[in-house]
Amino acid sequence: MNEALLIAGMALLTFGPRYLPLALAGRVRIPPLLEQALRFVPIAVLSAIIAQTTLVRNGEIDASPGNPYLLAAVAAGVTAYFSRQLFATVAVGLLVYAAARWLL
């Protein structure tokens, strides 16, 4: 494995997709429909990442109450809904996760 080539290639293929739309901003007009669609990007992508990381364990879907990720996610979700505080959400989620790992 040529490490220099690996690093250069990865850097290019990471920076490219991140930069291209920002570079074009102001030069191309975004149609209103696309703009409306792009406002849903954070919710769509982050929710997908949350669902996969929480419920897919070792390549299988584990929705049992013995899955400590699921317990932590539910606790974090309830905390986030009522408190709207990021720090409180993370703290409760991690505590429930640690307790579940320790008890189960």
Binding site: A80, Y81, L94, Y97
Partner: peptide, 12 residues
């Protein structure tokens, strides 16, 4: 798990 609960705190 830390990343997941942080994302939940942002999305919800």
């Amino acid at each position: 798990v830390a990343m997941v609960v942080a994302f939940i705190g942002i999305v919800v």
